[in-house]
Write a protein that binds this DNA or RNA. Structure first.
Lengths: 227, 227
DNA sequence: ACCTGAACACCGTTCAAGT
DNA sequence: ACCTGAACACCGTTCAAGT
């Protein structure tokens, strides 16, 4: 299901050059840089960029997907760690560090970008890993039972975005915010229960399901197919 | 210092129409709508938009400033409330509600927009109110003493942004996140101290100080003027 | 099969001509 | 003093012509 078409080796190299050039320039000056500049930095024509990526949005999405996949890999590796609580917080900690370095990742992660099927798909994967880590930490008694992985993802995304904005204030602002998240979801001291119900991973998936996307059946269709 | 030039009454009305039309369209379809559409919805020519606002960014900033001023007013009113803790959390609660309705407000509040002097100035005002509320709540013993107003502002902004992204999941997702913020900053159960030091309001101001802005002396200059 | 740059549509901004 | 729309520069995207 991935990289199916065997492409010419120079084309593959050009694609890599475009991704690298784009990452560089996006980090330097944000997402508003022109595609002409990206192609120029990659040493290629503008047309080549659009041959590799159907749109500028798709180019950005490709970079975001790469970064999120790296987070997923780190998360999966940490699932084997001995201390469930520390593993979860270490993952969150790394996410904050990544968001401070690669601004493009978190700049492109609001709901406008969730309609992109590639980004939504990789988010579902990340959420599955996060869900496993949260469940493990809850079983170990270090995380309160009324928070879900979606709750944590939302807090995480918010803190990353905000602490990136304020990183000039204080280099450790991200760590500080992480400690606050930790205080929020830690097991003891929860006299006051959270309002609403813990959002489940299924709700998250059905919420971001795309119309017309192959292989992902909308929840409505699942519900009717049985009756 | 405000609205000094007495303008023609029809010009003032046109300015209002542009702000209202822009707010409407921004809420409907985000900040990427064209200025032509905004002017059309306001029943005016494109040139009139640029006579009232030097750029599209300035138009957006004007709307943001209006909304933040409303938050400041609500906050000042709540400073007189009898219960310091509830007052603080009610303010945070309202901020989340506003962010869910007026997407333009929080979409335009990352660090790219902090270089806008109007937005930075109104942020300093908001921070002063928030600082008063946090200090009051700390004195009442309901908020832990090692968090600052800047900490709360960062969490608040993050939660607003993220819960706006996920509001389709669950209408109460904002309230839920608010409860998590509350758990994070509440007084009891803080065995684990926060890393780093509480960022002060002064740090915040000096961090976002603009070059060449009249009346706001950079911290560096204050430090040298005494020697 | 892939690359390229001219060409197109569109958008933010300016400005000379109007009232 | 203010309004207007044609005109300009720029950017994302397409495509006919090249290798």
């Amino acid at each position: 299901m991935e990289e199916r078409t065997p492409r010419r080796v120079d084309a593959e190299r050009n694609r890599r050059r475009l991704l690298d050039a784009a990452t560089e320039i996006f980090c330097e000056r944000g997402l508003d840089v022109s595609v002409g500049e990206i192609a120029e930095r990659a040493g290629l024509g503008r047309g080549t960029l659009f041959r590799n990526f159907p749109s500028k949005e798709a180019l950005i999405a490709a970079i975001v997907v790469e970064r999120v996949r790296e987070s997923i890999a780190r998360g999966r590796a940490m699932l084997a760690a001995p201390d469930p609580g520390e593993a979860l917080f270490a993952l969150v900690d790394q996410a904050i560090r990544v968001s401070e370095t690669d601004r493009v990742l978190f700049e492109a992660l609001d709901d406008n970008w969730m309609v992109n099927e590639e980004i939504a798909a990789v988010h579902r994967e990340l959420l599955a890993v996060l869900d496993a880590m949260v469940t493990r930490a809850q079983a170990a008694g270090v995380v309160r039972r009324d928070v879900s992985a979606v709750d944590v993802l939302i807090m995480l995304k918010g803190v990353c975005e905000a602490s990136r904005s304020f990183r000039h204030l204080d280099a450790d602002i991200g760590l500080r915010q992480l400690d606050l998240v930790r205080a929020a979801i830690s097991a003891p001291g929860h006299e006051r229960p959270l309002r609403g119900h813990p959002p489940t991973v299924q709700e998250f998936e059905c919420c971001h399901a795309q119309t017309g996307a192959e292989g992902s059946v909308p929840a409505a269709e699942l519900a009717t197919s049985g009756g």
